[in-house]
């Protein structure tokens, strides 16, 4: 970004080392915990509605020792992973078909642009009717939400194929299948990974939503049960856990993205840029 070596120093000051940055970050987190501890203790907010941080973390620790929580966690992540996988495969296939069939891209544009912004939560009543409080509901919502994220990126990706590369492949008489494998797929891969990253976080949100609202088994249901049974500290603890899993999901997909793209020789440039 910055042009010359001199440009950074004015603003950077003493914040140049990684250690200092981490120290500030830790201080920020400590500050949040202290605030969460002090606000209820000082009676600014009633402890019944916002327990002190120590109690929240204590409740979370207690929950983590129960088998039920781990089962719920497994169900949430299972639904998330399965839904994401279905959406991913379906979207990649759909994207390739749309690219291969002449005219389909132009013909499907209006339909995609209409269906894409439909909030997947609109399907909650349908999910409830069709599947009730089960994995099926989770899957319906997760797949619908994640599908569009991947599809749009796949379509950008296959449209981005360099015409010169494609012409070269044609002039050497590569078959259609071979062109897809050697030209289209490597070009589209970075886009597809971006789609996967976006879809992964949306899928996690929808998995939790289905559990929370429809009542499919999982972490969301546990939160809802904790709330309705008045286990306030437990509820907060589970919300914290949901945040931590959200971070883990993001990190995991980022690591995967970097690995897939770094391994692929033809897209190394993209990773670097």
């Amino acid at each position: 970004m910055t042009g010359s070596p001199g440009t950074r120093t004015v603003t950077a000051g003493s914040m140049t080392t990684k250690g200092a940055k981490a120290a500030y970050g830790l201080a920020g987190l400590a500050g949040l915990l202290a605030l969460m501890e002090a606000v209820p203790r000082l009676g600014i907010v009633d402890e019944r509605f916002l327990p002190p941080a120590s109690e929240i973390l204590g409740a979370l620790a207690a929950e983590l020792r129960t088998a039920a929580l781990w089962t719920a966690l497994g169900e949430t992540l299972g639904g998330w992973a399965l839904g994401l996988a279905i959406a991913f495969v379906a979207a990649v296939l759909a994207g390739v078909v749309i690219d291969l069939v002449p005219g389909l891209r132009a013909a499907s544009h209006s339909t995609i642009e209409f269906l894409r912004p439909i909030p997947s939560v609109a399907l909650i009543p349908l999910a409830t009717l069709l599947f009730g409080a089960s994995l099926g509901s989770t899957l319906l919502l997760v797949v619908y939400a994640a599908f569009w994220q991947v599809l749009i990126q796949v379509m950008y990706g296959v449209a981005d194929v360099d015409t010169v590369a494609d012409d070269t492949a044609r002039s050497y008489g590569l078959s259609r299948w071979s062109r897809i494998r050697n030209v289209v797929w490597p070009t589209a891969l970075p886009y597809i990974m971006t789609g996967l990253r976006l879809a992964a976080s949306v899928a996690f949100i929808l998995a939790i939503t289905a559990e929370l609202v429809v009542g499919s088994p999982g972490l969301g249901l546990e939160i809802q049960v904790a709330q309705s049974s008045g286990a306030v500290a437990t509820m907060y603890g589970l919300v914290v856990l949901a945040g931590l899993i959200g971070i883990a999901v993001n990190l995991a997909v980022r690591v995967l993205e970097r690995r897939v793209l770094a391994w692929h020789p033809s897209v190394r440039g993209e990773v670097a840029s």
Binding site: L29, F204, I205, I208, T209, L212, V213, G220, I223, Q224, Q227, M235, Y236, L238, V239, A242, G243, L244, G246, I247, V249, N250
Partner: peptide, 13 residues
Amino acid sequence: FFRAIPPPVLVPL
């Protein structure tokens, strides 16, 4: 951290 919390869990909270 706050961004990573799935927004729907904020509803009961």
